[in-house]
Write a protein that binds this DNA or RNA. Structure first.
Lengths: 338, 338
DNA sequence: TGCTATTATGGGAGCGCTCCCACGAGATTT
DNA sequence: AAATCTCGTGGGAGCGCTCCCATAATAGCA
């Protein structure tokens, strides 16, 4: 069926061992022999058997991508597709493959077991871990290389790729305040998700820096979905905010819809700002002021860093923080007079 | 590190073979022995080594999911996330795992080789194969079980899960015609994608059934993206259609935007209908008349069918066609007088 | 009672690979 | 000149599992 090392060896007139050395770029192989083996392998369309390699060497060139699906809602915004694309693309470029686990809570124990003990994963990318994700604990106990997409709030011994959610949010809210808004509200993300908590933190910081006391009535938690943003905004309207920082664009789109239904104009009656810069943000009506984060790039970097971490284990964690960009569009409006 | 069969055997006071039989639900094991082995395995948190199992038995309980990324645009609409969710969910429920390949054209040959010859995939789900997808040819030549999501136009020896795109589109266009529209246009999907071609086919059929000649000026091909829909609609506007059937909701949202900018009201000046029923469709302004297709369910069924196909190989292909549903919302408007 | 099914179990072989050690030949050192 | 050190190569062992065959114990039937 599939070509084996031994066959290549026979055709090239060398031993199995030599072919193996060639395939793994080991030194101490004659230039000429190497070339001959390479060409035979190519012509026989040889592909090493991953299972055998894994058994013998414990290395598979497969990365696991684990996405907790407690918040399955997340899958309806373009965040994960972009992340996956970035990861897959890096894997393609580096001769790796991806195994995907959508960790549904009801199968949690089994998923963890599969991921950790199946023996066919070289490392794990854990995307948007929850605050107290059991997968994280299991990973660290097992000693399998892994990297988070999205930092961990308490544990600073783990590697991650992230953007600075706190400061990005803070800057956005500071911008709204500078425009002259007095009652800046926020629609926050779920508090058990790190990005949600961080962006709320940034909001609070910006207020504090201006010496403004946070008004609990102007802070509503939602679930990162359009629908959630819609409902949250309906709850916010009676409290008459003059600007709202929404912790994701998907929610901002929902908020926009609620405002339209409430007969409020954006940005004339109320300014709005989102987070993410999803493709639709620029095309919303009005176009959405938002924070751009390089999602696909984060995926690529996570994969690349993990691959490096696997072949060059290091005690100290890698922490990669990518820059964001404030995109000022029409939804935040001009400075207001006073 | 990881627990092995042999350890379980020792703890349970039986042989490796017996443990293997228990783990694979083979008959001819004493009830009591079986229970004992089970409990030992459970308490030692045993997980079979996938690589070893694969090597020995040629079965891995891993499904490959291959998504051609020629049209990476596809990833910005919720189709694939939903499909993936359905597949992953079925895999979780059936003790399988998923390997994901986003087949970028530049790595095509290598991807095919990895998928087919790595030896760690029991079967493949190929999503939205292109018209002449080389992966398909390779799969069939290799004899690996596989299933398509989205039928194949010429090859009817392959298994697939799909909706009846032709008839669903036909019905939607027939509905628009029944409302009294005279110049029904379409924004079609890419012609090298089967769903795109099929929906266009349905459009043409509906016209033919009414004895209406297709007007080339009223048919514009786009790429299933919002942006593509926007541009397509701009090109359509000068030809004054009174209704447009858009082959995907994502494109319909773009079309809506183009119409708004052109100062045309929906549905008063022009009726609009989409396809897919993405979550946002119901919340668009106005809410979008569309065809609902059970995307997540298609994923689940594809995975379940494939798993069945792997354990019970059959010569004849399985063809599963799921029903769609016409959702009449405001964007198509009421019947028009004449 | 003898004989053949049936059931429960153990152990060997081997899947395709990597790693380690052994070996010979040539280069380098003393 | 002998001793040592490279380098290139081959072959054995073994990763953890499944499959097959052998064996023993029991059941079924004449």
């Amino acid at each position: 069926m599939s070509t084996t090392l031994e066959e290549i060896a026979k055709h090239a007139g060398v031993s199995r061992s030599t072919v193996s050395r060639v395939m793994n770029d080991h030194p101490n192989v004659d230039q000429e022999t190497r070339a001959r083996v390479r060409s035979v392998a190519e012509s026989l369309n040889y592909q090493p058997n991953v299972a055998a390699r894994s058994l013998a060497a414990g290395r598979t060139h497969i990365l696991g991508l684990v996405i907790p699906m407690g918040v399955s809602a997340l899958f309806s915004d373009p965040y994960f597709p972009l992340l996956i694309q970035g990861i897959a693309s890096a894997c393609n470029a580096n001769e790796h493959s991806v195994m995907l686990w959508l960790a549904e809570p009801e199968y949690e124990r089994r998923t963890i077991r599969q991921v950790l003990q199946g023996g066919l994963i070289d490392g794990v990318i854990l995307a948007s871990a929850l605050m107290d994700d059991p997968m994280l604990e299991a990973l660290r106990k097992r000693g399998l290389p892994f990297i988070l997409v999205g930092r961990h709030p308490t544990d600073n011994e783990v590697s991650y790729v992230d953007v600075d959610n706190v400061n990005s949010a803070r800057e956005m809210v500071a911008y709204l305040l500078r425009l002259g808004h007095k009652r800046v509200a926020t629609i926050a993300g779920p508090n058990n998700m790190i990005a949600g908590a961080d962006r709320l933190q940034g909001y609070l910081l910006a207020l504090r820096n201006r010496g403004i006391a946070a008004n609990p009535a102007l802070i509503v938690e939602a679930d990162f979905t359009e629908e959630g943003g819609y409902i949250a905004m309906q709850r916010l309207v009676p409290h008459a905010p003059d600007a709202v920082f929404v912790a994701s664009d998907a929610m901002a789109v929902g908020a926009l819809r609620a405002l339209r239904e409430a007969g409020l104009r954006v940005p004339e009656d109320i300014a709005l700002a989102g987070f993410d810069d999803i493709p639709f943000a620029a095309r919303a009506d009005p176009p959405l002021t938002t924070v751009r984060q390089p999602i696909q790039r984060m995926g690529t970097l996570a994969a690349e860093t993990l691959i490096d971490l696997i072949s060059h284990p290091q005690p100290q964690p890698r922490r990669i923080v990518l820059p964001t960009e404030l995109l000022i569009r029409e939804s935040s409006g001009p400075p207001i007079g006073r």
